[in-house]
């Protein structure tokens, strides 16, 4: 009788170690990319080392922060939060029909959801600050262009996350409702909404966190909020005031992140 083990080893040859050429080529490609990028952006460590004391000077001028400036920026901070809240809400409301249009399992044909997804991807390519700069050009200075920019940005993010969740819902309830003669609206209200409302709320909160951070810098392009004060204080080289703005923003952002994370944990 033949040894089964022996015949086994004869049939399956020992696996060859993976070749190194691919790794070497990948590494070379990455190094080439890095070198090209360094040339393009004029990286110079000499400049960094020479400029480093300047940065330390700047940090030194920031401390101690001038706390009395705090009273001037509370209104700006409230406006920032307001912008984030209104922008996120408008975005979330618009995102609902958009997400439904993009969901492959709810729309009848790919001629509906492929173009919808394509448009959504296009919207998502533009960063919020860039949108704000555009809207400032159209509507003039103030919080309204900032709100619109945040709303557009929120639609992109919330609709994408929501439609991906929509595609994973359980089809059972929908089929049961079709069987008892429900129409499309009834199917969505009683079959789809209960399955995704918690996830949707969680995405809205997550987007709100991102929008608070974004709203804090939109003022740099004139779109309202606390960002306006960066321009003012940096322009007059009052770095101790800038430090107050930075610290205040950090505190608010950390607090909102914390509250929102706790809420999201409760939701899911």
């Amino acid at each position: 009788m033949k040894n089964p083990l022996e015949s086994g080893t004869r049939q399956t040859a020992r696996p060859l170690p993976p070749t190194r050429t691919k790794h070497v080529l990948t590494a070379l490609l990455i190094l080439l990319l890095l070198w090209g990028s360094a040339v393009q952006t004029e990286v110079s460590f000499k400049e960094l080392i020479e400029g480093f004391p300047n940065m330390l000077d700047l940090l030194r001028e920031m401390f101690p922060p001038r706390w009395t400036y705090f009273d001037n920026i509370v209104d700006g901070m409230l406006e920032t939060i307001r912008m984030a809240l209104v922008g996120t809400t408008i975005g979330a409301i618009i995102a609902i029909p958009v997400a439904l249009l993009c969901a492959g399992n709810l729309m009848p044909h790919r001629w509906v959801y492929y173009p919808a997804r394509f448009l959504l991807n296009l919207v998502r390519t533009l960063p919020d600050l860039l949108l704000a700069a555009l809207f400032v050009a159209v509507f003039g200075l103030g919080p309204v262009p900032g709100i619109l920019a945040l709303a557009v940005f929120s639609v992109g993010l919330i609709a994408k996350l929501t439609y991906e969740t929509l595609e994973t819902i359980d089809q059972g309830p929908l089929e049961a409702m079709t069987a008892v003669g429900a129409n499309a609206i009834q199917r969505i209200v009683f079959g789809v909404v209960p399955q995704i409302s918690a996830a949707f709320m969680s995405y809205v909160l997550y987007t709100f966190e991102i929008n608070v951070r974004a709203a804090a810098i939109l003022g740099l392009v004139g779109a309202g909020g606390i960002g306006l004060f960066y321009e003012a204080t940096l322009g007059f080289l009052e770095y101790d005031k800038t430090a107050v703005i930075i610290l205040f923003t950090l505190a608010i952002v950390l607090f909102i992140d914390f509250a929102s994370t706790k809420l999201r944990e409760k939701l899911l």
Binding site: Q40, T41, E42, V43, S44, E47, L48, G51, F52, N54, M55, L58, L59, L129, R213, A216, I217, L220, Y230, L234, I246, T249, L250, V253, L254, D257
Partner: peptide
Amino acid sequence: TFPEIIMAILFIKAVGPGSFAG
């Protein structure tokens, strides 16, 4: 939580305006 734009402003002070600060 420290916005990158603000970091960029700080680095511009150190290495001057340009891509390297970015």
